[in-house]
C-alpha cells in the first residue's frame, strides 16, 4: 500500500508584516514527487521550513514519517534531506570535504551511502579536490543535492533548486530527481517555473499564502472551465492589443509564439471574424489543450474577481 510520508493538515503561519500561509493541507507519499508551484511570496518556503522544523506553525499539524515536526523535531531532522534555496555549502571546503562533513554530522560515511548518490556525485567526483566556491552553478547544484542525500533520508525537501538555472540544466536536474524518487523517497520541491509542473506526480498551485488547487497535472488541466484557443499570425502584439478591445474576450495572454484566448461566449469563428474586421486577414485560430500555466492564470483571475 502507498504510505504517507509527509502530512500537513490545516497549517497557518502569519508573519509580523501580515504575510504568511493559511490553512495549508498537503501530503506526499513515499516514492512520490510533489511540486509547490507559485511566484515569489506565495508561501512555498514557509511550508518547507515548517516541515523541516526550522519554523513553527501558528496552528495546524505537520508530520514526517509519523513524527511531529514540532514536538519530535529531532527525529524529523534525522530523516529529512533539505536543499535550501540559497547555496548552502561551505565555499572554502572542497567538494569531498563538504560531502564528508554532512555525512559525519549524520553519523555516517560517504562509502556507506555511496550507491544512492552515485548517479549524481560521479559527475562532480573528478573535481572532488576543488573548493566548492570555485564550482560552476550546475556543479554546485549537484554537490548540494549529494550532500542532502548522503545520510539516506526518507524525505527530500528542495526549495527552488532550479531558480535562475538555464533551461537545459533544469531539465537535467529533474532527471536526477526522477532517479531519487525511484528509491522510494518522498520528494517535495518548490519552483516558480510553471513548465516544471508536468514533471511532478502532483502539484499544488500557490498564490498569496494559499493553495489554489492541488492534484495531478492532468487532473488540474482537465478542470479548466473554458474552451481554450491558440491564435497565431504576423504581428502578434497588434493582434493582442486588438483582442483586448473585443467584448467577447474572457482572457487573452501571449504564450511564446502564440496567443492563448478564452471567450465569454461565441467560438473561434466569431473571434476570427472580429479580427478580420480589424484588418487582420491571415490568422490561425485552433482549439488547444490548456497547460498548467493557463490554469494558474485562470485561478488567479477568478480569485481576484471573487474578492
Amino acid at each position: 500500500m502507498e504510505s504517507i510520508s509527509i502530512h500537513i493538515d490545516d497549517v497557518s503561519k502569519t508573519y509580523a508584516n501580515g504575510e504568511g500561509i493559511s490553512n495549508i493541507s498537503l501530503s506526499v507519499k513515499r516514492g512520490e514527487l510533489v511540486g509547490l508551484i507559485g511566484p515569489d511570496g506565495a508561501g512555498k518556503t514557509t511550508i518547507l521550513r515548517i516541515i523541516t522544523t526550522l519554523l513553527l506553525a501558528d496552528k495546524g499539524m505537520a508530520m514526517v514519517e509519523g513524527f511531529d515536526c514540532h514536538k519530535q523535531y529531532k527525529n524529523v531532522r534525522r530523516i529529512i534531506g533539505y536543499m535550501p534555496g540559497r547555496f548552502s555549502l561551505y565555499q572554502d571546503l572542497t567538494v569531498e570535504e563538504n560531502l564528508k562533513f554532512f555525512a559525519t554530522i549524520f553519523g555516517t560515511t560517504i562509502e556507506e551511502n555511496y550507491e544512492l548518490i552515485r548517479p549524481i556525485y560521479s559527475q562532480i567526483e573528478p573535481f572532488k579536490n576543488r573548493r566548492a566556491g570555485a564550482l560552476s552553478g550546475g556543479m554546485k547544484q549537484k554537490l548540494a543535492l549529494s550532500c542532502s542525500l548522503i545520510h539516506k533520508p526518507s524525505v527530500l525537501i528542495l526549495d527552488e533548486p532550479t531558480t535562475g538555472v538555464d533551461a537545459v540544466s533544469r531539465r537535467e536536474f529533474w532527471e536526477m530527481l526522477k532517479g531519487i524518487k525511484e528509491k522510494d523517497i518522498a520528494i517535495l520541491v518548490s519552483t516558480p517555473y510553471m513548465d516544471e509542473a508536468s514533471l511532478c506526480d502532483r502539484v499544488a498551485l500557490m498564490q498569496d499564502g494559499k493553495i489554489m488547487q492541488i492534484g495531478t497535472p492532468a487532473h488540474i488541466t482537465s478542470q479548466f472551465a473554458h474552451t481554450l484557443y491558440s491564435v497565431k499570425s504576423e504581428n502578434m502584439y497588434a493582434i493582442l492589443k486588438s483582442l483586448r478591445t473585443y467584448p467577447l474576450v474572457h482572457s487573452v495572454f501571449p504564450f511564446g509564439q502564440k496567443l492563448h484566448l478564452t471567450l465569454k461566449t461565441g467560438d473561434a469563428a466569431d473571434a476570427k471574424h472580429f479580427l478580420q474586421t480589424q484588418g487582420f486577414e491571415e490568422v490561425t485560430i485552433e482549439q488547444i489543450v490548456p497547460n498548467i500555466e493557463d490554469c494558474f492564470m485562470e485561478l488567479m483571475s477568478s480569485k481576484k474577481t471573487e474578492v
Binding site: G38, P39, T163, P192, M300, S301
Partner: peptide, 16 residues
Amino acid sequence: DEPTGGVDPITRRSFW
C-alpha cells in the same frame, strides 16, 4: 537581466 524571475505568470506578461 532576467527581469521577470520569480514573478507570477500574469505579471510576467504585463511586464512584456
